[in-house]
Amino acid sequence: MYAEVAGFYARQMRRLDEGDAEGWAATFTDDAVCRISTRPEPLRGRAALTEGARAATAAGAAAGEQRRHMTGMFDIEERPGGLLRVRANTIVYATDARGRSRVHQVCTCTDILVRAAGPRRGLLVRDRRIDVDGA
């Protein structure tokens, strides 16, 4: 199970880092909710998640940075109904055009994952809470 969860986050974060907003949002359920401690309102549904990912990519580009998410330290808890509760830490690095990197954010992410049925198979995020350190 650990390898499956780690692989899910590796693929999900790579999509975000590469600017694939639609692909990243597709890793959530249709009715997913994402709460971020730096935002006053949660993102609800794939359309809002897609726009949020686009905005994050645009903010990095406007700052002249490439942002990369390093997610790990998975604490996986099986829940009734096949749900998984996963807590993980993410360090977001920002690298400028000269190759200088810095830590942009450090976050704790708590997700409820479900197994997709049908052709989409695999894990999807139903509920995400991102607590940004210092926010």
Rank of each mutant, 00 (worst) to 15 (best):
W24S: 08
G19P: 02
A32M: 00
G60K: 08
I76C: 09
D30V: 13
Q105G: 01
G7A: 14
F28T: 04
L83D: 10
A116G: 02
D31M: 04
W24F: 14
D31P: 02
R120S: 03
R100L: 04
D133F: 15
G82D: 02
D30W: 10
G72H: 10
G81V: 13
L16A: 05
R68A: 08
L84Y: 15
A55N: 15
L84E: 11
Q105S: 03
A61P: 07
R128P: 12
Q105Y: 03
G99A: 03
T38K: 05
A56V: 11
P42V: 08
A32W: 00
G60I: 07
C107K: 00
D75G: 09
R35C: 13
S101I: 06
P80Q: 13
A32S: 00
R102D: 05
L43N: 10
R115N: 03
T27G: 14
L43P: 14
Q12M: 05
T90S: 15
G60E: 07
A6Y: 00
R14I: 10
A3L: 10
V33C: 12
L49T: 13
G23Q: 07
G118F: 06
Q105M: 03
E77R: 15
D96E: 01
V92A: 06
A88T: 13
A94M: 00
E18W: 01
T29N: 06
G122F: 01
A48P: 09
A10P: 02
R100Q: 07
I130T: 15
F74T: 10
R121F: 03
R35W: 14
T50A: 13
V132R: 08
A63G: 09
G134M: 11
R54M: 14
R128N: 11
R126D: 14
A56S: 15
V5F: 00
H104I: 08
R46G: 02
Q105N: 04
E65R: 06
R68V: 10
R120T: 03
M1H: 12
M73D: 14
R79A: 07
N89Q: 08
A63N: 10
Q66R: 15
D75H: 12
L43I: 11
L124A: 08
Y2R: 04
E41G: 06
G52V: 11
C107G: 00
R11A: 15
V86I: 09
D31L: 04
A117M: 06
R129N: 11
A21P: 08
G64T: 05
F74Q: 15
G134W: 10
G122Y: 03
M73Q: 15
T110V: 07
G52C: 12
F8Y: 06
P80T: 12
Q105F: 02
A97M: 12
V103A: 06
T95K: 11
A21L: 08
V5M: 00
D96P: 01
R46V: 01
N89W: 07
A55G: 11
R100P: 02
G45N: 00
G134R: 13
V92P: 03
E18A: 02
V106R: 11
I130K: 11
R121S: 07
T90V: 15
G23T: 09
R79I: 05
Q105H: 02
I36W: 13
A117F: 06
M70N: 04
Y2P: 02
G64F: 04
R35N: 11
F28R: 04
R121N: 05
R115F: 03
M13L: 07
P42S: 09
D31K: 04
L84K: 13
I36C: 10
E51S: 12
A47C: 08
A117N: 08
R98N: 02
I91S: 09
V132W: 07
